[in-house]
Design a protein around this nucleic acid. Sequence first.
DNA 1: CTTGAGTCCGTACCATACTACGGAGTTTAG
DNA 2: CTAAACTCCGTAGTATGGTACGGACTCAAG
Lengths: 134, 134
Amino acid sequence: MQHAMTIGRLAATAGVSVETIRYYQRRGLLDEPRKPFRGYRHYPPDMAKRVGFIKRAQALGFTLEEIASLLRLDGADCCADTRELAAHKVALIERKLLDLGAVRDALSALVRQCDTGQAEGLCPIISVLAQDGE
Amino acid sequence: MQHAMTIGRLAATAGVSVETIRYYQRRGLLDEPRKPFRGYRHYPPDMAKRVGFIKRAQALGFTLEEIASLLRLDGADCCADTRELAAHKVALIERKLLDLGAVRDALSALVRQCDTGQAEGLCPIISVLAQDGE
DNA sequence: CTTGAGTCCGTACCATACTACGGAGTTTAG
DNA sequence: CTAAACTCCGTAGTATGGTACGGACTCAAG
């Protein structure tokens, strides 16, 4: 590991800002290397991978809290927990997809109405989501 | 409309807090009924449906800003502006559908990997997230 | 050896979407 | 008719996920 970096290089490598790195440290997602007696902290290159992990998990809809717990079970045999969390997210997303589809249909019906010039029905956006599903 | 409610009953019916109702009023998502000379404002029952719509739209990932413009489309008849706005929202939703669909596919592929039990040591979800890929 | 860039650290600020609080007025149940 | 409960209204605080700032220190190039 001769390629230890400063925080600035780490941030650049990981594609985030220095402030974001520090924020993740405060949130407990990254640990802060010991500060040398004189000089700057140096970060191992793996840290950049960890930041990448965080960013990818975020893009999949995990909160920083959830990501922190994923990172805590990293490598452990708690695959089942991770699987549960992911499966739960999938279920949430499936519902969102259905509901979003309904809203899209209502809106595009409105657009079609406009195009065919029939001012008959009024747009019922509210009612397409009106049932207390969930 | 003999069933006009006070803000407290509205909030209870809609399953949110009084403060949330007021907040939506401030944000322009709900209008505030006139205050009688002496007494409390009273809210029509439809208002609860409107709040329900807001909540469900939020769960779909719309911001309050976006929801405000969706609400403006409810009950709209077709003028050019309405058509434009609706078409724009449809495009927005199509994009969300694609993004969410991709997230779901990625996540459920990961869950399937867990299930096919080829877990030699590391959880597949963790190891995929840890990858530098992309 | 100076200067400019980068680091350290704390604090403050941003947007979003609430949530809580306090004091005054109003309503309603007993 | 009194007292609890509710409303009104403004202001202030919370959580999330950062971003910005400022002063002191340190490192690296000229």
